[in-house]
Structure formats: C-alpha cells, structure tokens
Write a protein that binds this DNA or RNA. Sequence first.
DNA 1: CATGAATGAGACTTCATTCAT
DNA 2: TATGAATGAAGTCTCATTCAT
Lengths: 190, 190, 190, 190
Amino acid sequence: MNLTRGKDQRTKILDAAMNIFGKNGYYETKIVDIAEQAGVSKGTIYIYFSSKEELYIEAHEREFRQYLAHLHHEVGKFTTFKEKLLCIAEKQLVVFYKDRQTPNKYLQAYNNDPKMIKCLHDFLDHYHKYVVTLMRSEGISNPEEHAKAFIGMLESYKRDIFFNPNFDYAMLLQTVLFVVELFLNGCQKD
Amino acid sequence: MNLTRGKDQRTKILDAAMNIFGKNGYYETKIVDIAEQAGVSKGTIYIYFSSKEELYIEAHEREFRQYLAHLHHEVGKFTTFKEKLLCIAEKQLVVFYKDRQTPNKYLQAYNNDPKMIKCLHDFLDHYHKYVVTLMRSEGISNPEEHAKAFIGMLESYKRDIFFNPNFDYAMLLQTVLFVVELFLNGCQKD
Amino acid sequence: MNLTRGKDQRTKILDAAMNIFGKNGYYETKIVDIAEQAGVSKGTIYIYFSSKEELYIEAHEREFRQYLAHLHHEVGKFTTFKEKLLCIAEKQLVVFYKDRQTPNKYLQAYNNDPKMIKCLHDFLDHYHKYVVTLMRSEGISNPEEHAKAFIGMLESYKRDIFFNPNFDYAMLLQTVLFVVELFLNGCQKD
Amino acid sequence: MNLTRGKDQRTKILDAAMNIFGKNGYYETKIVDIAEQAGVSKGTIYIYFSSKEELYIEAHEREFRQYLAHLHHEVGKFTTFKEKLLCIAEKQLVVFYKDRQTPNKYLQAYNNDPKMIKCLHDFLDHYHKYVVTLMRSEGISNPEEHAKAFIGMLESYKRDIFFNPNFDYAMLLQTVLFVVELFLNGCQKD
DNA sequence: CATGAATGAGACTTCATTCAT
DNA sequence: TATGAATGAAGTCTCATTCAT
C-alpha cells in the first residue's frame, strides 16, 4: 500500500513536472508550481527527488523512454522501408502537434548542466541509432548521415506546427509524405 | 570622440554579451560576468541597455543581421543552384564549427519571453525566406517546404560538430556535399 | 498552532516595522533591519507581506485603527463637551509624548506613493469625522472648520513635545487645558 | 561676468531643486532631474553644491528666508492686531494655495538627517518667534502657546487646500476670517 | 567652468531547499 | 510520509558621486 502510494506520488509529481517544465522551461518553473499541479506540498517533492534538476531529468528520461518504446512498437507494424519512414515521421510530428499549445516545450534550453545535457543526448543517440539501424537494414549507404538528415528535416517543421495557426492534421500528413518523398527521391522541379 | 567611445563601449558590451550568453545561456549569465568580460562595470551596461533581456535581444539581433548579410554576400558569388546550396550549407555548418568550443550557444533556450522568442523567429523567417527565394527562382515545387527541409537537415548536424571530437573541416565539407546531394537526388542505396 | 504561529510572526513583523519605520522613515529603513528587529529572516517578511510598501501601509493602518478604537472608547467615558475635548486633546498629545524618543515617526514623509498617501488620508478623514460629529452634536456652527482648527492646534505642539527636553506630563496637561480653553473662549489678554 | 554667471547657475539650480524636491520629495528626486530642469549637467550641480543633501538644505533655507522677509514686510503694512493676524493667516494659506498642484511639497519627510531637521526647525523657530513677538506686543498672555495654537490651526487647513478640488481663493479668505475669529473669540454655537 | 560617461555600493526581492512538527 | 514556514544566498537594477576631457 505504501509502495503503491509512493508510486502514485512519484508519478503525479513526474506528470506535473513534465507539464510545467514544458510550459515554462526549467528556469521559469518554480518547484511550488509543480507541487500545486501535482496536489502535493513542496516538501513532498524533496522526498522523492533530491533537487529540481533531478526532477527535470527524471521527468524527461521517462518521457523519452516512453516515446522510444511507442515508436518501436508502432514501426513494427509496418514492413516496407517507405512505410516505416512514414511512420517515424508521423510519430515525430504528432509529438509536436499534440503539444502545439505549449510550444516552449520543444524550444526550451537544455541548459549547461552536464546531467541535463547528457539526458537529452542519450535520447537523441537512441533515437538516431534506431533510425540508423533501419537505414542500414535497407542497404542505405552512409546510414548515420542519412538518419541525421531525415530527423533534421522533421525537426524543421516544428516551427510551422507550433506557430502556424492553420496547421492541422491534414497538413501534418502532407508534410510527412513530402519529407519522405524528398528523402527518397530528392527535390522536385515543377 | 564621445560618440566613438560610446560606440566602442556598446560594441564591447555586445561582444561580451554574445560570448557569455552563448557560453552560459540566458539564465546562467550574470550581468556582472558580461561586465567583467567587457572590461566595464555593472552600471555601465545599464547606460547602454535598459535590462538584461534587452541586452540579450540586441546582441542576438546584431549577430543574426550580420549572418544574413554575410550569407547574402557569399551566395552572390555563385551562379548555379547547386553551388548556391553548397554555399548556404557550408556557411551554416561553419557557424557551428567556429563555435564548437561553446556548443551551448546553439542549444540554449529561446525562453518564454515574447520579445526573445520574436527575436529568434524574425531571424528564422528571414533566413527561410532567403532560401525560399532561391528555391523558387530555380523552379523548385513547394519552395517553402523544400527550404524547411534543407535547413532542417543542416541543423541536424550540429550535434556532430559540437560533440564529435573528431569532426574537422574536411568532414564538414563532406557533410555539405552529402546534404546537398541528398537534397537534390534523394537517398542512395549501396 | 500554525495559525497561531503565523499570527505571531505577522504581529512581530508589524511591531518591528512600526518601530523601525518610525525611527528611520520609509526610505532609510531597510527590510533587513525590520527582519532583525523582528527576529526573523528577510525572506520571512516576504511570506507575510508582498513588498516593503505593503508592509509600511499595513503597519500604519493597524496603528491608525487601534488609535481610533482607543479614542472612541476613552471619549465615551465622558459626558460634557469640554470633558470630551479635553480627552481628545490629551489622547493626541499622549501619542506624541509616548513616542518622544523617536520624533521622526511624526515628522516623516508620507511620500508620493498613492497607496501610502491614501493610507494617511483615510486615517485623517476618520479622525476628523469623529471630531466633527462631536462638534455637531454640541450645536457648534461650522463643525468641519472647527474640527480642523482644533486638531491643528494640537498638532502644533508636537514640536514642543519632541524637542523641548523639559516637556513633561504636567506640561502636557497644561497644554491640553490651554488648547481647550482657547478653543472655547478665544485668546486671553493679561 | 564669471561671478554673475556663477550666480545665475546657482540660482537656476536652486530654483529647479525647490521645484523637483517639492514635487517628488527628497528620496524620489534624482539629481539628474534637477539638472535637466535647471538646464545644466549633473556635474555642474556638484560644482556649486557638495551633495544632494546640501542642495536640499540650501534650497529650503533660501525659500524660508524669502518667506519670512516677505511676511515681515507684508505684516508691517497693518497696524491693528486683528489685521496682522489676518495678514499672517492669509500669507500662510496662500503659500499652500500657490503650490496646490504639487501638494507633496508640504507633506514631504524632513528626514533623519540632522542637518535637514535643523533646517526645518530653524525656520519654524523663526516663524514662531515672529508670531510670539506680535502676541506679546499685544499683551496676550502665554504668547508662546498662543502662537503655536494659531499657527497649528492654519497648518490644519492645508489638507483642504491641497485635496479639496473646490477650494478656491474665496474659501481661502473665509478660512482666514474663521481662524482669526476662532482665535480671538473661541468657538461659536449656532 | 562644464560635461556626462563611468563607477560600484547597496537595496529589494525571489525561490530552492531544509527541518521541526 | 507529508507539510509548509523559515531561511539566506544571490541577482538585477538604481543613482549619488567622481573625474578625464
């Protein structure tokens, strides 16, 4: 029971942390805001996490872990290379799309703190490696470079998703198609 | 004489600000650090800039302005589409490469402050429009989307440049070639 | 228990604030001085009051409220007009007399801040209205003007009380008698 | 010529100082505001006055001196006691009336600084002594106390003058008459 | 004499973290 | 475990005063 309760508390705090950090960024987030959102007191947060920084890292690690697991699961449903690329692209853009009300989440600093930097890098490494593996298994040359390029293109649409008020899910799907097409065949002249 | 001195001071402060903000990020930068680096006192900074935020914005606006002017000038030296793409790609990666000792500069938050966000957006808008114009003049379909994708691919290499200790200028040029090739012709199988 | 503690702290801070503001005036008072006198830390003051200005106003409002309640209570003990005037006069001069070691308290600026000005005005309005009511119930003509004059005369003795080292309680009572006599019958020739 | 210029500068600065100090109070006045109003630079002020405090004192001493001289001159035009009282009362209220757009001038702190306190006390001493002399020469008993009371009554109308927007010169004259009448004959019942 | 750029001490206020209950 | 009052380090910004020109 205690364990369960403890787990609930941790989860509630991590949820609230992800929410508030995403909305306001690391520096503009106050521990007390997270506590309020989580429905606990400031002191309670320090029972489960040793510092604001650690809370930030744990919240993000959980998020990243969940995303990779989800991605792996979804991509597994497809068989052709193009389908898999479309799936990866769609999943990445959907992440942005879901959070389009709180764009700062993806524009925030991953500040100087080595642990916070490591946290982001580890995720990106996993993500890239996942895409690299896919590329390699398809016989793509230079799989590392191709993976970077593919992911970079997708990243580049987040501004649109966040700041173009007309961007809807239909446009998202068009973008997915466009990026995969460009990746596979290069730019198209009229 | 006074004017000159005043201009010197402003420039010294902007240089120091860009340097320290780049190294430490907005929140971890103390005004007194910038003052020290610029060789002036705290108070002097407030003669030329009304707040830390304004200093941040002005320093970045100057940087962005200079980059766009430089890019325009350099790209103007070339005539073919591919050459121009190579030039844009090289310039963008060289920016990262020059600052590879202070990678945070390009990983920093552009935080919640509306003015600071606007500052970055304005730059990105100008940069994108520049590339869009180039695409359009070459008869590329969907010039907006192609521009985003092209710029996104380049962005994606900054992690390599910053964190791969073996990354040198030769690799940079290879990357430039790779990206442009991918953009023009799509991915290549072995 | 918490509530009690909280109330204690608030009271301790308000007491210290009144004391130090009275001794040094608004501008020459540092929050840390009040904190020290109250036996709490700087930060604690900001738990109970949102700013130095608010603390100043709340401390004075409490003081004013208490004075008016006290005055009302004391005057109620008397029945004749002259007795009531004597009571009002004595109470006002006693306030000065009690604080004669910290004269600045009554010579301080009520500075430009609109809220701080309002705080003083509200008190003076209440005080005047109280005296006006008394005048009117006695059938005095022009009760407003008479009230102002009466209060003004009393005010004018504070310099004596504060700066004449020989001023004692006997002199205070003589002054009270003199003022009321003058108010009722006008000046006296030898 | 230099001397004359020097005198001009001093005068200009004292005028500006009185103006700005009156409007904003000692602490909310910046030397640079006075400099601007006087049409000189900050540095120039320090040629003629050694500190902000000294400037404050000198500006007020000049003002007080001028007022007493003026008062003496005006009262000298009258012969009866009542006329002289009316003259004193009118002059005092007119001072407030003229500055009714900048009421803070007469609500400002005379802060803790001993020199600034002395400056005000010296003026009040002179003023009181002047009225005392008049009282004594008329055979009024207790001339000190009567003088204080008389001056106090007048002071008490400044709130009206400053904060009652309907207060005009006619009301001022009525007040003068009322105060002198009250002083001479005591309060009046209907 | 006059200027105004530069200085730097010092104040207010915030907020992560602690700890007694 | 949970709380939230208390702490105090630290940062931004102001402004009287100085001094080189």
